[in-house]
Design a binder for these strands. Structure first.
Lengths: 338, 338
DNA sequence: TTGAAAGCGATACCAA
DNA sequence: TTGGTATCGCTTTCAA
C-alpha cells in the first residue's frame, strides 16, 4: 500500500481524460473500438501522467499474465545463452515478458522451480531439460499451460517441442570422422550419468561406432563435478593422450569441452588435425573461422528460442494450432580441426 | 476466466481445511501466528489439492511483486551470463523471481524496456548499462524502486551500484604489460563509440600509456558492427600485424575478443607471448589454465549478480540499509599469454 | 488464535 | 461508442 500511492492508476488517467476506466482500458487493448478523438485524449492523458498499466491487476482480471517462464540448467557455458536471448527478444516484441529460472542440472529442483514459477500463472513454459520428475509433469499437465521442451525432440513430449536429435547429431559426427579417414575415435563428454542431451550424443556416437564395425567404443573418464567445461575437456584429452595415444579423433559433447581438449592437445605438442582431429557441438561464437576454427555440429540455438516463443504465443491464439514438434536440425560445419 | 477454473484457489484450500482464507494466507506467510495443529491441517490441504498461490493476486493485494527485473545488453558472449545466473539463484533462494530483459546496447530501447518491466511493479531493478536515457532515469526515480547498477561504479549512481572501476582495470593491465617489459602496446576493443564500460577500459589504458611516457596510444580500427567478438578481435589483430608489426603486446577489451586475437596471431605464425603478448578481461570459463591459459583481468561476475540481488532485498527490508556502492574489485591473473 | 469485510487495479459482461 | 458493476485471488485492517 505504501508504494501503490506512487503509481498512477487507470482511474487517474480516466479522470484526466474525462472518460471511464474501461475506455482507457480499451484504448490500450483494442483502440479500434474507441473513437479516434477519444483515443487521442486518453493517450495524451497517459503520456501526461506517465501511466504504466499494472500487469498484476491485468493478469488477475483477464487470466492472462503475458509472461512466459523458462527453465534452463545454467546460463554459463554459452549453450543456452543465445536460446534465452532469442526467446526473450521474441516475447518482448510480442508483448510478453520472460520469467527466468536456472535450475542446475538436477530434476528435483526443476520440479521446485516449476511450482514457484507457476505462482505467476505464466501463459507458457519453456523446459530445457527433457527429463522431468513425475511431480513436475503432473503439475504441468494438470494446469494445461502450453509447454515447449527445447534442445531435444522427446519421444514422448509433454506438449510441444523444438530442437534436434542429439542422437543423430552424435551419429552424424561419428560418421563424418570415419568418412575423413579416422578410425580410433574417442568421445569426450559425460557418460551415462550426464544430462539426457549429452547422453544421447554419446549414444549416437556409440551406435555409429558399432555400426561401422569398429567394435566397442572406448570409455574416456570424464569428471562431471569439475565446474569448467574446458577443464573437463582438457583433463579427458590428457587421459586420452596418455592411455590411448593412438587415438586420431576426438568428438566433444560441446564446443566448450572441445576448446579445452584442443588447447591440451596443442600444449602436448600434438598437431591438430594431422595427428588428432577434434570436433565439438554447438558452434559457439568462439568456434568460428576467426576463433578456434573448430569443426563442429552447428545448432541454431537462437532460433530454438525464437521458435519456442512463437509456438507458445501461437498456441495461445489459435487454441491448438501449429505442429507439436519442430526439428530445427543441425549441420556439420567443417573447419580446421578435423 | 476460462483458465481460472483449473487453478485451486485459497478459498478451496480454506474449505478443505475448514478454516477461513485468511488463515491459509497466514500459514503461508507467517505460520508462527497460527496454532500448530491448524497449521498442519492447512498444509495437508495445500498438498492434497496441489495449491500454488497466485502471485499476481498477492502482488495486487500487498503491493509487493516479489520480482526483480534485470536488463542486460545480451546474454551472448558470456560477459553477463554468470552475473545473471548468480542474480537469479540468489533471488530464488530468497523467495523472489527474476524478470529478464535483454536490451541490445542502445539506451533508447533500455528506456522502453524499463517502462514495460515496470508494469510488473518489480521490487527492484538491475541495470547493466551505466548510461541511461533521461526518460529512464526519471521514470526510475519517480517510482522509488530500488535500483542497482552493475559492472561499473558510476560517478553519479541512480541509486546503488556494484561493480568495479573499468578505468582502473584498463590502467592496471596497461601497467602490467609495461612492467613485464612491453613497450609497443595496443588496445583492441571499441573506441569512443563503444559502450561505457569498454570506453572506460580504453581510457584507463590510454591514461596509463601517456603517464608512462609512451606518447599517444595507437588507435586500432575496430568494427563494432560485426556480431562476433572473436571475429572483431581477429580482424583487429590482423590489422595490427600488418600495420604495426612491431607491436609487442595487445590488451583486449574482453576475453572473447582476446580469443580471436590470439588465434589470429597463432595463425599468422606469431609466437605468443614471446613475440606478442595478448591479454583480455573477464576471466571467462575458457580463459583458464586448462583452456586458453589467457592472462586477463579477472572480474567476479557471478558475485556481482549475487551482491546486486542481496542489496535489493536488504533495501526492501531495512528501508535504507546497506552501502550504496560496492566495489568488488578485479585482479590481474597472469597465465601463459603475457 | 481466528474470522469478516473491504479493498488492490485491472478486465468482462451487459446495458445504454 | 461508451459506461456501470461484478469479479479475479489475495492481503490488510479491524473485530471477536
Amino acid at each position: 500500500m505504501t508504494l501503490a500511492s506512487k503509481w498512477v492508476t487507470m482511474g487517474d488517467v480516466a479522470r484526466e481524460a474525462k472518460v471511464s476506466k474501461i475506455t482507457v482500458s480499451r484504448v490500450l487493448r483494442s483502440p479500434e473500438k474507441v473513437r479516434p478523438e477519444t483515443c487521442e485524449r486518453v493517450q495524451a492523458a497517459i503520456r501526461a501522467l506517465g501511466y504504466v498499466p499494472d500487469e498484476a491487476a491485468g493478469a488477475l482480471a483477464s487470466g492472462e499474465s503475458r509472461m512466459v517462464a523458462a527453465i534452463v540448467p545454467t546460463l554459463e557455458g554459452s549453450t543456452f545463452a543465445s536460446t534465452v536471448d532469442g526467446l526473450g527478444q521474441y516475447l518482448r516484441e510480442h508483448g510478453h515478458q520472460l520469467l527466468l529460472g536456472s535450475a542446475g542440472y538436477s530434476s528435483a529442483s526443476e520440479a521446485e522451480l516449476v511450482s514457484t514459477l507457476f505462482g505467476h500463472r505464466p501463459d507458457g513454459i519453456v523446459l530445457s531439460n527433457s527429463e522431468h520428475s513425475p511431480d513436475a509433469v503432473a503439475l504441468v499437465k494438470g494446469t494445461g499451460i502450453p509447454v515447449v521442451e527445447i534442445w531435444e525432440l522427446p519421444a514422448d513430449p509433454v506438449d510441444m517441442a523444438v530442437g534436434f536429435s542429439n542422437l543423430e547429431a552424435g551419429q552424424a559426427m561419428m560418421r563424418f570422422l570415419f568418412d575423413i579417414g579416422r578410425r580410433r575415435i574417442a568421445y569426450i563428454g559425460g557418460g551415462p550419468t550426464a544430462n539426457l542431451r549429452s547422453r544421447l550424443r554419446f549414444d549416437g556416437y556409440a551406435k555409429a561406432y558399432r555400426a561401422l564395425g569398429l567394435g566397442e567404443p572406448p570409455i574416456v573418464p570424464y569428471d562431471r563435478t569439475i565446474p569448467s567445461a574446458s577443464e573437463r575437456g582438457a583433463l579427458a584429452m590428457r587421459w586420452i593422450l596418455k592411455n590411448r595415444p593412438d587415438t586420431d579423433a576426438v568428438f566433444c559433447s560441446s564446443d566448450a569441452v572441445a576448446l579445452g581438449a584442443l588447447e591440451e592437445a596443442r600444449r602436448r605438442g600434438k598437431c591438430v588435425p594431422k595427428e588428432i582431429a577434434i570436433t565439438g557441438l554447438g558452434d559457439f561464437e568462439f568456434a568460428g573461422d576467426y576463433g578456434l576454427g573448430l569443426t563442429t555440429v552447428k545448432v541454431p540455438g537462437r532460433r530454438i528460442g525464437e521458435t519456442a516463443a512463437r509456438m507458445l504465443l501461437e498456441r495461445k491464439l489459435d487454441g491448438e494450432g501449429g505442429p507439436k514438434v519442430i526439428d530445427v536440425g543441425f549441420e556439420i560445419v567443417r573447419r580446421g580441426t578435423a
